[in-house]
Design a binder for these strands. Structure first.
Lengths: 196, 196
DNA sequence: AATTTTATTGTACACGTGTATAGTATCTTT
DNA sequence: AAAGATACTATACACGTGTACAATAAAATT
């Protein structure tokens, strides 16, 4: 059996309505009722497709995240550089975020649920995991990779948080440089700070 | 002029009601109406004190965060160790989180707004800042301290996220060890991973 | 103790939420 | 093209939200 045309039509009009509303008001102020009025959809119908407004927004976030994954998984980036040097895969993250700036401004908004942040976290963390496994890196056997990758992935997100707070005004090139410099800081510094 | 007794009474009964409700249901399912019924407070009165249920919860979070800050600021921990070694200040974070486990389980819940996470982030980040300044560490002048500390602070929170996801079952002692091992990993490894 | 100040209550209103159900319209299948 | 399946609509209900305002109660001030 094929996908019902009615379903496609209503879902698309709901999604479109969200995009339109997002241009004039923040996500957390958009109600299901308003969305349905604009989409010319009965409110009861809405609930047979989405749980709430976040359910609709999540669709777009998933599209963006999968775009991020796709870019990262291009073979060129995975094989073309020697592992002795900092490879540029991660660098792509800043370009990606800048490209979808409007969405990331929503995701990092303090009124928005952690759910989207978690999605980001899991995505970046998976990259870390794969990178370690592909290069057959063996870490100190005492270190649990789950904790190591969580540490590393969230560190990157820390840069994004700061970037967001500065309204993404720092150029992506400088973000790349900052990341590389932080990564190449000597371990002696890390021991000195006691914290980092 | 002194603080009106009526105000104190109503605020305390609202806060108490929240604690009671939190024992049986998640924060995001607690309505202002329910809170007011239990607190025996008129709903209109509620809104002259708090904006919403989160406003009430935030009070507790602020108490907890200030407790965290206080513990960190005890002079003993700031002077008693040589900076050449990893100092144990940050180690306190795991004990602290474990102590207030119930609250952190709420804060890290995916349905809860980023606001509380940001509060945590800012707190830890301030520690990083102070630590760098107190020790008169000069980083590479090209590195912006704001990005460095955001990176470092959020990395720690990454460990907390993973810990939370495992329902805080990893013993605090092991969390301490994991952190120390991650921090003392050689920079050569970091260059190899390309990501971390 | 009397007066003044103000926090709280009770009530109302327009709106949003989530769910349910019967009737209608639209799609798919044969 | 007709039959069958099902998505959509219209409507209703109980509940929650945020705001407003006059009446009341309980504080602080004199």
């Amino acid at each position: 059996m094929k996908q019902d045309l009615r379903v496609i039509k209503t879902q698309e009009s709901i999604r479109q309505a969200l995009l339109i509303l997002l241009k004039t008001k923040p996500l957390d102020s958009i109600s299901v009722a308003e969305l349905c009025r604009l989409a010319k959809i009965n409110r009861g119908t809405f609930y047979s497709h989405y749980k709430d407004v976040h359910g609709v927004f999540k669709h777009y976030v998933e599209v963006i995240v999968s775009d991020f994954k796709k870019a990262y998984e291009q073979p060129y980036y995975r094989t073309g550089f020697r592992i002795q040097h900092i490879r540029p895969e991660m660098i792509k993250i800043f370009d990606h975020v800048k490209r979808y700036k409007k969405f990331y401004q929503i995701i990092f908004d303090e009124k928005i649920p952690l759910m989207y942040y978690n999605l980001l976290f899991d995505t970046v963390r998976t990259f870390m995991m794969e990178s370690i496994q592909e290069n057959h890196l063996k870490t100190d056997s005492e270190i649990q990779i789950e904790y190591l990758t969580s540490y590393q992935a969230n560190a990157i997100l820390g840069l994004l948080i700061e970037w967001y707070r500065r309204d993404f005004e720092t150029p992506t090139e400088e973000m790349n440089e900052q990341l590389i410099m932080i990564l190449s800081m000597s371990s002696s510094f890390r021991n000195q700070t006691s914290i980092s």
